[in-house]
Design a protein around this nucleic acid. Structure first.
Length: 270
DNA sequence: ACCGGAGCCTGTTAGC
DNA sequence: TGCTAACAGGCTCCGG
């Protein structure tokens, strides 16, 4: 469920309680939650390591540990990270738990079990295939145009392709396309220079707004402290099927593209 | 290169 | 109200 703004919100909230802490142990009741290495090896390599930095790349959380170890977490659909006292009642959905040296623990709650944990020496082993960060300074409208020129794809699935751009998911793809006034079914090679500029601006705008509002609590997403974000109040089309477009008053439509629900205004988006 | 469909999981929601 | 089917903010693999 979490996309770039939700993951960024989690990263910012976790730095305070985690940076400087030492991980003393790992519990796991669903081995497939740990992608690499095998759970026993991960436990051995993580124990005694200190959390030195927490960053985000696309939808991944990246924990830089001491001794050249990097812990990477992807929340997928229902993942949630929180730091709580170790005597907090156990959570049956917290399939992977990192015990800390201050009597607290980092819980990776994940009812659908799609999330994954990685421990690597080289973060590129996991993050290598990702496309550019949409909010990074070096990502320009020209860079977007250049990447678009190399693809011939329907816009919506292209925006969801993490090797094209990192971090956009279903909410922010629909919202960016509405803001750019582009039909989700438009093909990437048909965009004019003006439309590419509008898409570039729209992507930056909706992602920045999502971060400012600390994520969209439309389904199950909550911040690490359990509180809801505010981005759900700013959504123009996502899951507004049948409701009135805030721009023209016409009904928002829902179609399926690339197997994903897609919401748009057929009147405003061309 | 790109597209559609199945699969991974389980909880919630929509519809009859 | 109750049951069932559809749906879910992600991503990978496979065949065409």
């Amino acid at each position: 469920m979490p996309e770039l703004p939700e993951v960024e919100t989690a990263v910012r909230a976790l730095r305070g309680p985690l940076i400087g802490r030492t991980i003393t142990g790992v519990r796991n009741d669903w081995p497939r939650h740990i992608n690499v290495p095998p759970p026993d090896e991960l436990r051995a390599r993580v124990a005694g390591r200190r959390v030195e930095a927490i960053d985000r790349r696309g939808k991944y959380l990246v924990f830089t540990l001491s001794d050249d170890e990097t812990l990477i977490v992807h929340l997928k659909m229902t993942g949630h990270l929180s730091v709580v006292s170790a005597d907090t009642p156990p959570d049956p959905y917290a399939h992977t738990v990192f015990e800390l040296d201050d009597g607290r623990e980092l819980r990776f709650r994940d009812p659908r079990k799609f999330g994954r944990v990685y421990l690597v020496h080289d973060p590129a082993d996991v993050l290598g295939p990702l496309g550019p960060e949409p909010l990074a300074g070096e990502f320009s409208a020209e860079a977007l145009a250049e990447r678009l020129a190399r693809r011939r794809r329907v816009l919506k699935p292209l925006l969801l392709d993490q090797t094209f751009l990192a971090g956009i998911g279903n909410i922010y793809a629909d919202e960016a396309l509405f803001d750019a006034r582009l039909q989700p079914t438009r093909r990437s090679e048909t965009l004019t220079a003006e439309e590419i500029a509008a898409l570039y601006t729209a992507i930056q705008k909706v992602l920045a707004l999502g971060i400012a509002r600390e994520g969209a609590s439309i389904s199950t997403y909550v911040k690490p402290d359990g509180q809801k974000g505010e981005m759900q109040n700013e959504v123009m089309v996502f899951r507004r099927t049948g409701q009135s477009c805030y721009n023209c008053g016409g009904p928002i439509e829902r179609i399926v593209l690339g197997g994903r629900s897609t919401h748009y205004c057929p009147n405003c988006q061309k």
